[in-house]
């Protein structure tokens, strides 16, 4: 069972039996569940799942219903990483002692958490888990905001975004700080595999998830998760927004192996201007006022610089 699930194309992928169920309480058009489905469907192995407090957690395990067809645990906002690490430790202990209920299984241990739970409040727990080298995957559902509590800024919130705790106003263009570079930070833990994914590029994503599942040690996945509610776009446009995020290179898709090798895994044929991405979202609406033009310019420059940097790293094999 531990062999990698064969997913040649979407038709073949569509024969998967989902282990994430509908009638969860996520918003219509939420990208979280698209990401979760792609992660879970990437393997036929058993799963032990954890979730940090956040949209995914509060919408998928509200008593008396669970939307999970695999064992799942939520403890708190900050500790889904450690919860699943504890379960992984128990697996290792029971395996050694010959007490696993089904000893032939090869379970995968996965934690899901939002950017607030990961970039902010759970940062220390993730760092600890990665330093200790638990055999687990940590997936950030990165919607760049505390969406569950109504749109407060996190350290993943990008410059110029209007949030309830850093709103745009008469004398403010919203968020002033740049998004935290979690990919580099997690790679710097010498994690064996770190990757940024987007659900629109499902093949790239599933390949990375499968590589992650096949990697021994902690794997960090940052998944862009456009939020219809807080990014302020029509729920039907979730995949369009995801396309804009990857094709504008705001969310470049790449992987870092052992903190030594960076590979860009998706190069858009036609790179979309960043303003097309920003303009499709209500959270950046105020940036299109004349007085905020410098913020828009800064955005494009930052994205260009980052893309150059990633390409240089890729070329230099560092």
């Amino acid at each position: 069972m531990s062999e990698i699930k064969k997913i040649k194309n979407l038709k073949e992928f569509s024969t998967s039996a989902d282990r994430f169920e509908g009638a969860n309480l996520l918003c219509p058009g939420c990208a979280h569940s698209i990401i979760v489905r792609e992660v879970l469907n990437a393997t036929n192995d058993d799963l032990v799942l954890a979730a940090s407090t956040g949209c995914l957690e509060v919408c998928t395990a509200v008593y008396p219903y669970t939307s999970w067809d695999a064992s799942w645990i939520h403890i708190g906002f900050e500790n889904s990483s450690t919860a699943v690490a504890g379960a992984e430790a128990m697996y290792n202990a029971l395996k050694r002692k010959g007490r696993l209920p089904q000893p032939d299984r090869t379970p995968k241990f996965v934690a899901f958490a939002g950017d607030g739970a990961s970039y902010d409040i759970g940062f220390q727990w993730i760092s600890g888990c990665f330093e200790r080298g638990h055999d687990m995957m940590y997936v950030v559902l990165d919607n760049e905001v505390y969406a569950n509590t109504g749109g407060q800024r996190s350290s993943s919130t990008p410059v110029g975004s209007s949030t309830t705790t850093a709103p745009a106003g008469r004398v403010s263009y919203g968020e002033k700080k740049e998004k935290k570079d979690m990919m580099s930070i997690m790679a710097a833990h010498h994690a064996p595999y770190v990757a940024q994914v987007a659900p629109n590029k499902w093949k790239d994503m599933v390949k990375k998830i499968q590589r992650g599942f096949n990697t021994v040690g902690p794997v960090f996945i940052n998944a862009v998760s456009p939020c219809t509610t807080e990014w302020k776009f029509d729920p039907a446009d979730t995949m369009m927004l995801t396309d804009l995020s990857t094709d504008s290179l705001v969310f470049p898709l790449y992987e870092i192996i052992d903190n030594k090798e960076l590979n860009i895994t998706y190069r858009p044929k036609n790179v979309v201007p960043v303003i097309d991405y920003l303009g499709a979202q209500g959270r950046f609406k105020h940036l299109f006022k004349p007085e905020n033009k410098h913020i828009l310019d800064g955005w494009q420059k930052r994205v260009d610089d980052n893309w150059d940097y990633l390409q240089r790293r890729e070329e230099a094999r560092v």
């Binding site: 992928f13 024969t15 990208a31």
Partner: peptide
């Protein structure tokens, strides 16, 4: 693949219908 609510029923590589108990109409 892009249905957030597991509401597209695919069997044997064919799309066969919509699960209206779980579709939120996004």
């Amino acid at each position: 693949i892009y249905c957030p609510d597991v509401s597209i029923i695919a069997r044997d590589k064919k799309m066969i219908g919509i699960d209206f108990d779980h579709c939120k109409g996004c």
